[in-house]
């Protein structure tokens, strides 16, 4: 069979395009793979050698060496992200329902208020909340920074807009005739809401909860101002560890976090599917 120059040219073009695209993927994913790989190094004479990638020998040694402080920070981050996600939903779902369903005047302004935390750079949110807590502390004697309350308020603030966004996206596409049909068939409005509307918007709630969890779980710029010594979230803990004690055990705890994130993502993908997650997502990166 004779191969035409046109086909060769096309094949080369495709190859170059594929190569170019895989470069983007290598750029994005290699740091994550390297962290996982490096964490599997065995114990070595000098610390430097333990950062080798690919590792010489496979071992879970560094997983047994994770400092207590990092595990405590991880626990705090987990609790905090759960709280932020929960309150994000408690505030965000009614907000989205009210925004889409009601005809109050000034909806654009209300929507802008709900979205404001997305417009404000996280570092500005951090310093603003720190100043706010100083101000409250000076008046009442209770300083909220360095407490679960303070951190939670900051994270609920930055996480809620994601829930509002995802639930709004689903509600706008919801056909209200479904609800009307339920009522015509004798359901009370309350029953129609809980049996028809709520199941339909649940994917939006799950996606929003996931985004809210992730935003809180990976936040540095807000928590860095609101943490206190001995009361630090995981990302802030390892942010500072980079300067002070850079140890291979960091790679081990980081790998645990990667596994947690992947697990959550997988869970949400199983429940609502990846395309649904993207469709409703204000899929803005976190961190």
């Amino acid at each position: 069979m004779k191969i035409s120059p046109y086909r060769i040219q096309k094949a080369i073009g495709r190859f170059c395009f594929g190569l170019y695209c895989s470069f983007s993927y290598i750029f994005l994913l290699s740091p994550i793979l390297v962290v996982i790989g490096t964490s599997l190094n065995g114990p070595t004479e000098n610390v430097e050698a333990s950062f080798k990638f690919p590792p010489d020998s496979l071992s879970l040694y560094w997983y047994t060496q994770i400092p207590e402080g990092q595990l405590e920070a991880l626990l705090l981050s987990f609790v905090l992200a759960t709280v932020a996600s929960l309150f994000g939903c408690l505030l965000g779902v009614p907000a989205a329902l009210g925004l889409v369903r009601s005809n109050v005047p000034g909806k654009a302004l209300i929507s802008a208020i709900f979205r404001a935390p997305l417009q404000i750079p996280a570092i500005v949110t951090g310093i603003a909340f720190l100043q706010l807590f100083y101000w409250i502390g000076d008046m009442t004697g209770f300083y909220w920074q360095g407490s679960l309350l303070g951190l939670a308020l900051g994270h609920i603030f930055i996480a809620t807009p994601y829930v509002v966004g995802t639930v709004t996206a689903i509600l706008q596409r919801f056909d209200t005739r479904l609800e009307e049909a339920a009522v015509i068939h004798g359901a009370t409005p309350r029953r129609a809401f809980f049996r028809v509307t709520l199941p339909v918007i649940m994917p939006g709630v799950y996606a929003g909860a996931l985004y809210a969890f992730m935003v809180s779980f990976s936040d540095v710029p807000v928590a860095i101002f609101l943490s206190a010594p001995g009361f630090v979230t995981y990302p802030v803990e390892i942010f500072f560890a980079l300067e002070n004690d850079f140890e291979p055990s960091l790679m081990a705890s980081a790998t645990l976090v990667i596994i947690i994130c992947l697990g959550l993502l997988l869970l949400v993908q199983k429940v609502i599917g990846l395309d649904a997650l993207l469709k409703v997502g204000g899929s803005r990166g976190v961190g």
Partner: peptide, 11 residues
């Protein structure tokens, strides 16, 4: 996009 940037910097 879901892995925190601090971990990626470690990589």
């Amino acid at each position: 996009t879901f892995i925190t940037i601090v971990i990626k910097v470690y990589g």
